[in-house]
């Protein structure tokens, strides 16, 4: 009886660990390759208010004039690492008069600029190059943060792409831009306590006001909604730890008992 139970429990604990540990260890699983679905935006917004909503993994494209400020917005949820990549196909080299510096900025739902932990968010293209690529990897989105901190919180993230340095003669030339935001699960090791009642989405409190047109960002909620931040692989680790402790307890108890019934005892005792 005991052997069967211990065996079953050990198997189950193994299954729990096998299920839980990879989820926690294999951080940074890349999102699936860009889907070429028809819903991907082909236009960009020109301000925070008009930012074009893009879903993570979608490739948003936009034609623009050099000098435009282009805005997109995507949702990122608690426990996610977001990476924004942008590619600008510059105007033909024959028309350009000098080097161009492009910049990618990411702002959170409160319009606070977010730091890029790695990735070139500013890049300079020489006169003869055809395109410039930019990237920005954000800090892990936390479920909760102190009011005085600037930590990324679940909600909308704005991407602003623009040229910051150029020869004056190059203003207004046509350029093609591509932006893609990917989110990856950061794993339970980054799961923090606390939660916001509403994600950091502009107009969260006026979203139900039907008199106002729906803000683009409200449409940009994650496909399966905002998580409440209560689930993380920490539950599995802790449960597995408890199970292991119980098993180890049983094993320890069994050790002190020796291998079954002492031989000196009579069978009838």
């Amino acid at each position: 009886m005991r052997t069967t139970c211990v065996l079953t429990a050990a198997l189950l604990a193994g299954a729990v660990l096998a299920g839980g540990a990879p989820a926690a260890v294999a951080d940074e699983t890349p999102s699936p390759p860009p889907s070429t679905d028809a819903t991907a935006p082909t236009e960009a917004g020109t301000s925070f208010r008009t930012a074009a909503a893009v879903r993570p993994g979608q490739l948003a494209t936009a034609g623009a004039s050099t000098g435009d400020y282009l805005y997109w917005v995507f949702p990122a949820d608690a426990g996610q690492n977001a990476t924004v990549r942008a590619r600008v196909a510059l105007p033909p080299a024959a028309q350009r008069h000098g080097a161009q510096t492009w910049q990618l900025d990411v702002y959170d739902g409160l319009r606070r600029r977010q730091a890029c932990t790695f990735g070139a968010s500013t890049a300079t293209a020489q006169k003869d190059t055809e395109s410039v690529e930019l990237a920005c990897h954000l800090r892990t989105v936390r479920a909760w943060a102190e009011q005085s901190s600037n930590d990324p919180l679940p909600g909308s993230y704005y991407v602003r792409l623009t040229v910051t340095g150029l020869a004056d003669d190059d203003l207004g030339l046509p350029a093609r831009t591509e932006v893609r935001a990917d989110v990856a699960d950061a794993g339970g090791s980054r799961a923090v306590d606390g939660s916001l009642t509403a994600p950091l989405v502009p107009g969260a409190s006026t979203a139900e006001d039907v008199k106002q047109p729906k803000q683009a960002v409200a449409a940009a909620a994650p496909e399966d909604g905002w998580t409440s931040g209560t689930w993380s692989s920490r539950w599995i680790w802790t449960a597995a730890g408890a199970a292991l402790a119980a098993l180890a307890g049983l094993a320890g108890y069994a050790l002190t008992r020796g291998a079954g019934r002492p031989s000196r005892m009579s069978p009838s005792a």
């Binding site: 660990l17 926690a24 479920a143 339970g188 090791s189 799961a191 923090v192 306590d193 931040g229 209560t230 993380s232 692989s233 920490r234 539950w235 680790w237 802790t238 597995a240 730890g241 408890a242 292991l244 402790a245 119980a246 098993l247 180890a248 307890g249 049983l250 094993a251 320890g252 108890y253 069994a254 050790l255 002190t256 008992r257």
Partner: peptide, 29 residues
């Protein structure tokens, strides 16, 4: 708490819990 619901995470946690469980079992025995 710093961690989500104050829950634990990682192999150290498992090690400590298994060790404490074993000791508790031995002592009880």
């Amino acid at each position: 708490d710093v961690a989500s619901f104050g829950l634990g995470h990682g192999w150290w946690l498992l090690g400590v819990m298994a060790l404490v469980g074993l000791l508790a079992g031995l002592i009880t025995g």
